[in-house]
Amino acid sequence: MSLEIALYQPDIAPNAATIGRMCACFGLRLTIIEPAGFAFTDSGFRRAGMDYLEKLDLARAASWAAFRADNAGRRIVLLSTKASVPHVDFAFQPDDILLLGRESAGVPDDVHEAADARIRIPMAPGLRSLNVAMAASMVTGEALRQLRQFPTG
């Protein structure tokens, strides 16, 4: 197993597709935890993902419970504005799942509590959050750097 990205009930098709494109480029699996706020045939999803989506290892989980059951034994690392540990101070493991919440609402408390670890991206005071695709790319880059898992081709 290797690093994986999971999106909890994503709202915005172009953001999910941008993350999918990143996953395709780095050889990572992307799991969408349903329900998503868009159809996978959405033009915004296709436009943002371009032809990279054809090379994406995409999985879909019917629910949070199904996702948890499918990934028993793997560490779930939640990106959260409520976390106290900066992502650059966190020690990633090779089979971590990086979990990102909905753009509109993050994740519910039960999902937050179920995560094995919670990390945040440090930001200037008074600012709340980054775009989810930007956050995914920053943390994925740090995890791949730490783990030396960047593709070599």
Score class of each variant (00 low, 15 high):
residue 69 A to C: 08
residue 136 A to W: 02
residue 73 G to H: 01
residue 92 F to R: 06
residue 109 D to L: 08
residue 94 P to N: 11
residue 136 A to C: 01
residue 109 D to H: 05
residue 124 A to P: 11
residue 98 L to F: 13
residue 107 V to P: 00
residue 60 R to M: 14
residue 70 D to K: 02
residue 132 V to N: 02
residue 68 R to E: 06
residue 81 T to D: 04
residue 132 V to Y: 02
residue 117 A to K: 11
residue 106 G to F: 00
residue 100 L to A: 01
residue 86 P to S: 13
residue 137 S to C: 02
residue 124 A to M: 15
residue 63 S to Y: 13
residue 87 H to C: 11
residue 114 A to Y: 11
residue 134 M to K: 00
residue 65 A to R: 12
residue 101 G to L: 01
residue 60 R to N: 13
residue 107 V to T: 00
residue 122 P to S: 09
residue 122 P to M: 07
residue 78 L to M: 03
residue 110 D to F: 15
residue 61 A to C: 12
residue 109 D to K: 01
residue 90 F to C: 10
residue 56 L to M: 10
residue 97 I to N: 02
residue 108 P to S: 01
residue 89 D to I: 03
residue 126 G to N: 13
residue 72 A to L: 14
residue 107 V to F: 00
residue 100 L to H: 03
residue 67 F to R: 01
residue 139 V to Y: 05
residue 130 L to D: 05
residue 125 P to H: 09
residue 106 G to A: 02
residue 137 S to P: 08
residue 81 T to H: 03
residue 101 G to W: 08
residue 70 D to Q: 12
residue 128 R to H: 05
residue 126 G to K: 09
residue 54 E to K: 14
residue 117 A to R: 01
residue 67 F to T: 03
residue 102 R to Q: 12
residue 76 I to L: 07
residue 84 S to W: 10
residue 65 A to E: 15
residue 81 T to S: 05
residue 113 E to K: 02
residue 109 D to V: 00
residue 106 G to H: 01
residue 116 D to L: 11
residue 59 A to L: 14
residue 86 P to H: 08
residue 105 A to Y: 02
residue 84 S to V: 09
residue 61 A to F: 14
residue 96 D to G: 10
residue 86 P to N: 11
residue 136 A to P: 01
residue 95 D to W: 10
residue 109 D to R: 03
residue 136 A to I: 05
residue 132 V to C: 08
residue 133 A to S: 15
residue 113 E to S: 09
residue 96 D to I: 08
residue 74 R to A: 13
residue 132 V to H: 00
residue 92 F to E: 03
residue 81 T to K: 02
residue 128 R to P: 00
residue 80 S to Y: 09
residue 116 D to C: 10
residue 73 G to Y: 06
residue 77 V to Q: 05
residue 66 A to L: 04
residue 106 G to W: 04
residue 108 P to L: 08
residue 65 A to C: 06
residue 128 R to S: 00
residue 133 A to F: 12
residue 89 D to P: 06
residue 104 S to A: 15
residue 93 Q to R: 13
residue 78 L to N: 04
residue 126 G to F: 15
residue 112 H to Y: 15
residue 70 D to T: 08
residue 118 R to D: 07
residue 93 Q to K: 10
residue 91 A to N: 14
residue 125 P to T: 07
residue 63 S to W: 12
residue 72 A to C: 12
residue 94 P to H: 13
residue 122 P to Y: 08
residue 83 A to G: 07
residue 91 A to E: 14
residue 71 N to L: 10
residue 77 V to I: 13
residue 74 R to I: 05
residue 80 S to M: 03
residue 90 F to H: 13
residue 79 L to C: 10
residue 69 A to K: 12
residue 73 G to I: 03
residue 127 L to W: 13
residue 115 A to W: 08
residue 76 I to E: 03
residue 70 D to I: 03
residue 115 A to Y: 04
residue 112 H to M: 12
residue 62 A to P: 12
residue 127 L to D: 04
residue 94 P to G: 10
residue 137 S to F: 06
residue 120 R to E: 09
residue 120 R to T: 04
residue 54 E to P: 01
residue 121 I to P: 01
residue 100 L to D: 08
residue 96 D to C: 12
residue 58 L to C: 14
residue 121 I to Y: 09
residue 104 S to L: 06
residue 57 D to G: 02
residue 59 A to D: 15
residue 89 D to M: 10
residue 124 A to Q: 13
residue 130 L to C: 07
residue 88 V to L: 15
residue 74 R to H: 11
residue 61 A to E: 14
residue 77 V to D: 07
residue 134 M to F: 14
residue 134 M to S: 14
residue 119 I to S: 06
